[in-house]
């Protein structure tokens, strides 16, 4: 009954865990950068009143927001290669799934942020003779992005958690490494406890930071 905790195998395999941690961070960063970048365009398309932009963007966002992200990852790993002209490894499939998912969610943040800026700002920019791109880039986005930062940080937190799903398609991130080590060393208790702690240490500072930002922005009114 009484379990004798023994973390020694966790430490002797720590270089494998470090590789996993590195892969987790790479996947998260790549998907976050791509997701936030393309999310802006999808968000702008969603905000647009023109049907050619609005409808495809809306369809894309609804599909990716209303299906489980694990289904997306598995679709890109098992189904997509059949019709894809290029080879798809686990990293590519996970990146595709997580990036498209992040684009869908972040585009909604952009859209809400842009919407929250008063119409007068658009009109004032137009009155100065700016075209749409300049209005957006110089007047609207600089004001909107400040309001969006806490929401983006929340997305980043969610994204780091979601990278653990890539273990299902055998991408060697933290969770996958832990699974592998625990079957070799027969130490699931210590291994999974350690991994949960590593994720906690990785993510908790982020959530604290978000909370602080949120309190601060509320104080500003």
């Amino acid at each position: 009954m009484e379990h004798a905790w023994d973390f020694s195998a966790v430490f002797t395999n720590s270089y494998l865990l470090l590789i996993g941690l590195k892969n987790t961070i790479i996947l998260a960063v790549v998907c976050l950068v791509l997701g936030l970048f393309f999310g802006l365009f999808v968000g702008a398309a969603r905000y647009s009143t023109r049907i050619v932009f609005n409808w495809p963007a809306t369809a894309f966002v609804e599909v990716f927001r209303n299906t489980p992200v694990l289904v997306q990852i598995m679709w890109f790993f098992f189904a997509f290669p059949i019709i894809s002209p290029f080879d798809i490894d686990a990293f590519t499939a996970a990146t595709l799934g997580l990036t498209l998912n992040t684009i869908a969610f972040s585009s909604e943040i952009y859209r809400a942020g842009i919407q929250s800026i008063h119409r007068g700002q658009w009109e004032a920019a137009k009155a100065l003779g700016m075209n749409y791109t300049n209005q957006m880039r110089r007047i609207i986005l600089p004001q909107a992005i400040r309001r969006m930062i806490p929401a983006f940080m929340n997305r980043a937190v969610e994204l780091v958690k979601m990278t653990s799903l890539a273990s299902v398609i055998a991408y060697g991130e933290l969770m996958y490494q832990a699974k592998t080590i625990s079957t070799i060393e027969f130490n699931p208790i210590e291994m999974y406890t350690s991994v949960a702690l590593i994720f906690f240490v990785l993510i908790f500072p982020l959530t604290l930071f978000v909370q602080r930002l949120e309190i601060k922005s509320k104080g500003r009114g």
Partner: peptide, 13 residues
């Protein structure tokens, strides 16, 4: 802890 660790880690645990 429950909010910041991935659900798959919790499930495996």
């Amino acid at each position: 802890f429950l909010r910041t660790t991935p659900p798959i880690a919790q499930l495996f645990w």
